[in-house]
Simulated scan of single mutants.
Amino acid sequence: MELEVRHLRALCAIADAGSLHQAARRLGVSQPSLTTQLRRIENVLGAELFRRERTGCRPTSLGRAVLNRARPLVQGMNDLVSDALAEAEATRSGGPRLRIGSTASRVIGGWLRRLRVALPSTDISLRVDVSAHALLRSVEAGRLDVAFVHEVEGSPLAVPDGLERRVLVDREPQFISLSRDHPAARRRVVELGDLAGDPWMVDPTVDGEWDGVRRVLGAAGLNPPVLHGDYLTAASLVVLGEAVAPCQPTSGPRDDMVIRPLLGDPLAVRLLLVFRPGTDIGVVYAQLEDAYRDAARRASGYHEWLLRHRSPLARTP
């Protein structure tokens, strides 16, 4: 086995994440696959590169030496690919282009529509991904110009060095979706204790979401059953009263379920626009802010929350 750039990327990801589990999620591979790859790399070098501890993985002295040499090589390859892709894309398009990425959000449609009006001569493309880290890597590699991502409170994103960011919402509360006949659905604000007996539905592929929910439930002394699955499945189970699920406060009203804020807003995310240095994001950010404000006004429960908290987002610009 010869070491390749992908092996060096894996070592850097493990060091940055501090655990094989988190590194595997960022790389988009399974943990057993990454563990096997690390074992093979260590066999080639003849020594351990990371100490496996209860709290995660820490580089050994040899691991730190290898990482010091690996990081410049990985960054150099990223720069090479980024520059080549940008030059090839510019040659093909022959005009201005804007490649945007986003995690799932109710504001994407409004943002895209506004951008097409504001930048009529620009070729605009969109990529949606559940993984914020995957989008950030694409911005770093030059495959995207900007990415609109959410960062779960308590689970900070590993924004690649060199990228810039602008905060859209510093702390967006996450609401809870319930069936209409759930006892707590009659209340304007729901307490976590009201949901102690309900299974919670969480999508583990969303970076940081499961960790955030587990942290909040644990702090409240709750240990409800947790189901893992996508949010299309979650919606169907919520409607039937088989589960509750966290959701964005901009989620629109439905006849078969209710959306309620949680008392004290224990679950929250930060909304960020991440971009490469030199990118002109003035119009891009302004249209995103306008789309978000509009979505917030349309979601009556969230608009009421914004008014109660005297948020500037509740005001009409």
Rank of each mutant, 00 (worst) to 15 (best):
A196L: 06
A13G: 06
S236D: 14
R92K: 13
D161P: 11
R52L: 13
H182V: 11
H150Y: 07
E209M: 14
E2W: 01
A118I: 00
R254D: 14
L112V: 15
V206Q: 11
L178K: 13
G94I: 07
S121I: 03
R116K: 15
S138H: 12
L45E: 01
G56V: 12
A314M: 01
R52C: 06
A23Y: 13
A184C: 07
L163A: 10
R69V: 11
D16H: 02
R310H: 13
L112T: 12
P261R: 05
V152K: 00
L73F: 12
A299M: 02
P266S: 09
A65P: 00
A17Y: 12
V189Q: 09
R187C: 08
S179N: 14
R166G: 08
G56K: 04
L62E: 03
Q22T: 13
R180H: 06
P59I: 01
A84F: 10
I281A: 06
L227P: 04
R69M: 06
P156E: 08
D255S: 12
A185H: 05
L307P: 00
V206M: 08
L20W: 03
A104Q: 10
V244K: 13
A70E: 01
L222N: 12
P183N: 07
L178S: 06
V146N: 01
D290P: 01
D194H: 12
L262S: 03
E42M: 03
I100F: 11
L237D: 10
L11P: 01
H303M: 07
R297I: 11
A70G: 01
A70H: 04
Q31F: 01
A296S: 15
H133G: 06
E4G: 10
R171Y: 08
Q75F: 09
R254F: 13
A134S: 14
R40V: 02
V117M: 09
L8A: 04
L217H: 14
G95T: 10
A219C: 04
T316S: 11
L3I: 13
E42L: 01
A70K: 02
R69A: 15
D203K: 09
H309V: 04
S131R: 11
G278W: 00
L126M: 08
L313Q: 01
P59F: 04
P277G: 02
G95D: 05
L227H: 14
L119V: 03
G101K: 11
A88R: 14
P156M: 05
A132H: 04
H182D: 12
P249K: 09
A286P: 10
R276M: 03
R165P: 02
H133V: 09
A23Q: 05
L126K: 03
F148S: 09
D181P: 00
A219M: 08
V44G: 00
Q31V: 05
A296N: 09
A234W: 12
V244E: 04
P72G: 12
Q22H: 07
V146D: 07
D203G: 14
L62R: 05
T250Q: 10
A47C: 09
I281T: 15
R26W: 08
C247L: 09
V130D: 08
V66N: 02
R270E: 07
H7W: 02
S300R: 13
A141R: 14
H182F: 09
S155R: 06
R113N: 12
V202K: 02
E172G: 06
V107Q: 06
S155K: 00
Q31K: 08
A245M: 15
A86G: 08
P261A: 08
R254L: 03
G154Y: 04
